[in-house]
């Protein structure tokens, strides 16, 4: 079980191939000169060049980035405050709320998506606000990001030795001084991990965006979905390849960032 037997190699190799087959095929076909998918017709980079002068794809990229950055900033601030508060202070109904926080983790996206869609419609009827678009999509993303950030930050806080903050108070630091000199610096890795999770969730999300967006506020996943529904085109493969490469860079970057911490902790 602890040894790398031949069957284990074979099974794992097959599973890796299985997981990577779609990723590889998208990359390969983004260089296929055939205009309508189909079999391999020869190598080309023209689809990448084409991306640059297709305004809808550039707009979608901008929208995706704005959505991800704005929602991540807001949700990281609110989620960090929430995670900190929940690990430190008591309030009525706290137990129930800690269950509630897990809703976005466990509930299918589509349930969340249609709930927000109908809620926005109700608000629109009453207030005239909440026209579907960028704003509603950002609000929706913040909503599912906050609990994820809070859960990550809280688990980090719970793992901290309470004596460290006691020591700060014992050495004469006020609450405010303790928080900024001791607690917050120790929270930073947790906050960063939460923010990473939040931005990834936002970039990956299709279902919630699809239901809460409005005219003009198309994101990359929505663009890919509607294109694919009409038939896969090589330029969509090129776009997807770039997104895949961005994810790979993100994963490797995050792994490298975490490495020095792990070594210090292990020593």
């Amino acid at each position: 079980m602890r040894r790398l037997t031949l069957p284990l190699w074979l099974i794992s190799g097959f599973l890796y191939a299985f997981m990577y087959a779609p990723i590889v095929v998208v990359i390969v076909f983004s260089f296929n000169s055939a205009r309508h998918g189909g079999p391999w017709m020869g190598f080309t980079t023209e689809w990448y060049a084409k991306l640059l002068d297709s305004p809808d794809k550039i707009t979608a990229t901008n929208n995706t980035v704005i959505l991800a950055v704005v929602s991540t900033i807001v949700s990281t601030v609110l989620g960090t405050m929430l995670g900190y508060g929940m690990s430190r202070y008591r309030f009525p109904g706290k137990r129930m709320f800690s269950w509630l926080m897990y809703i976005p983790v466990v509930i299918p996206d589509i349930v969340m998506a249609v709930a927000m869609l109908s809620f926005y419609a109700l608000l629109r009827d009453w207030l005239g606000l909440f026209q579907l678009g960028m704003t509603t999509m950002i609000i929706a993303h913040i909503t599912f990001q906050i609990p994820f950030v809070a859960i990550v930050v809280r688990s980090r806080m719970v793992g901290m030795d309470p004596a460290i903050e006691e020591a700060a108070h014992d050495l004469g630091a006020s609450t405010w001084q303790t928080f900024w000199n001791v607690t917050f610096p120790l929270m930073i890795p947790g906050v960063l991990a939460g923010a990473m999770l939040a931005i990834t969730l936002s970039l990956d999300d299709f279902v919630v965006s699809f239901f809460t967006t409005g005219p003009g506020a198309t994101t990359l996943p929505i663009l890919i979905y509607s294109s694919v529904k009409r038939g896969i085109t090589p330029d969509i493969n090129a776009l997807s390849t770039l997104i895949v490469l961005a994810s790979v860079a993100g994963v490797i970057g995050a792994t490298l960032l975490q490495r020095p911490h792990r070594q210090a902790g292990g020593g």
């Binding site: 087959a21 996943p221 994810s247």
Partner: peptide
């Protein structure tokens, strides 16, 4: 394993149409 984990599900899904 992490790379497919963080790669957009939509892309990994429509790719099977090609495959």
């Amino acid at each position: 394993v992490l790379i497919p984990f963080w790669t957009n599900l939509l892309i990994r899904t429509y790719a099977w149409q090609i495959l």
